[in-house]
Simulated assay, not measured.
Amino acid sequence: MNAVRSPMAELLARQALPATTFVASAGVRAGERDPFVDAVLAEDGLSLGERHPRTLDDLEDDYFDLIVTLAPEAHHAALELTRSLAVDVEYWPTPDPTNAGSTREQVMAAYRDVRDRLKARISGRFLNTEAKKATD
């Protein structure tokens, strides 16, 4: 629903990648902004600002070199969307933190885990690749 994992990934990728890299996130269904996302991003000095959840239909551009999906439903939708296009689709299984625990600290820990996994995955996929290209 473009409310938790995907907006986190979008913001973390925007922070890590060159400004010339187009990054956008969208969900299969419409969703509501999640305050826990704002809280864990604020711990890193980041903010989604006025950004609100978007669906695939809300995207202004439909040309991508790479689509990264974080949930099974999104992955299946991306494969269907791109079946006749020359687009790479990668699936990064990422846990849904919205069902984690009953205390605020348990929930925050789950959201932090997702944030940290996404940071590591973005770094490993894009930043280490760029560093390797520079030394080749």
Rank of each mutant, 00 (worst) to 15 (best):
E60T: 05
V68W: 14
A77F: 07
V114F: 06
E43S: 02
D116K: 07
A9L: 00
V37P: 03
R117S: 08
E105I: 04
D58Q: 05
T82G: 01
M8S: 00
E105R: 15
G101Y: 09
D136Q: 13
A74N: 15
T55F: 02
A26V: 04
V114E: 06
T20G: 15
I122D: 11
L81G: 02
F126N: 03
D61I: 04
T21I: 13
A3Y: 03
F64V: 00
R14I: 03
A39H: 12
A131M: 12
A26T: 06
A42T: 06
L56K: 04
A131W: 14
A26Q: 07
N99L: 08
P7Y: 13
E90K: 11
D58C: 00
D61F: 00
L85C: 04
Q106E: 15
F126W: 10
A3D: 06
Q106C: 02
A109T: 11
A131S: 11
E50W: 02
D96F: 02
E80C: 01
D136A: 14
A86R: 07
R14N: 06
R33A: 09
V37L: 01
E73F: 05
D38R: 08
R112A: 04
K133H: 10
T55P: 02
F36H: 14
R112V: 03
A78E: 12
V68Q: 14
H76S: 10
R5P: 00
V89C: 06
Y111H: 09
W92E: 09
A109D: 15
S123T: 14
Q106D: 12
T135S: 12
D88G: 02
F36A: 11
R29M: 02
V28T: 13
Y91I: 01
R125C: 00
R115M: 00
A77W: 13
G49Y: 08
M8G: 04
V23H: 10
E105Y: 07
M1N: 08
L118T: 07
